[in-house]
Amino acid sequence: MNEISIFDIAGPIMVGPSSSHTAGACKIGQFARALFHGTPRKVTFYLHGSFAEVYKGHATDRALLGGVLKMRTSDPLIKDSFKVADKKKIEYEFKKKFLGERYHPNTVEIVLENSRRKLSVIGSSVGGGVIEILKIDNFNIRLRGRAGKYLSLVVRHDKNKMVIPKLKEKVNALKGIRVHDVEQRTYKDKTLSILHTKGRRIKLPEVIELEKSMQHVDFIRSLSKLEKQ
């Protein structure tokens, strides 16, 4: 059951001016960066609906970029995220684009690129700083980012290879972590799985170890390093 936390209401602690247009936007950026893993050279933001109309005044652009630069929603540096990005030589661009009726008005598609990889993430800020990740590349998913609930692993692997049962076994073998739910979406010959875990946070070396030890896996990304409110 997806219950709302009282700290989703009494929070987040953030820099203004808008929870859905600034804090939520920042969180979507953070998610995209965590899923990309590594520094992107170029980031393109496709703004949809209300994001496209009023992003300037709400500093949605600065917050999205700030999130991609791993800033927290309460980080006063968000104000200067353009400068930080320039310093780090990350190119950024904002475009308006209608993504489709089915999306919430506060939605953005973030495309992160470097010389080898490209990743697209669609996320919505549904109010009060709560966000949903709805698409990763071609996979339609539904990842809810609520206070203190970022204990998921995102895995892309070949379809129909008994990858997930094996991975599940390995994750369960780690001390203090248990997989309690798996979601899967398939597109062509690839599958994107989301493993929701319980217990402690999974550490980065463990994730890298998992990624190395598994066959038929494109990548494993941990979302556990993301901001807890």
Binding site: I9, P12, I13, P17, S19, S20, P76
Partner: peptide
């Protein structure tokens, strides 16, 4: 909030 200072969104900013 309008100065981009730190606040608590209770329930929203």
């Amino acid at each position: 909030n309008a100065r981009m200072g730190r606040i608590v969104a209770f329930p929203t900013a």
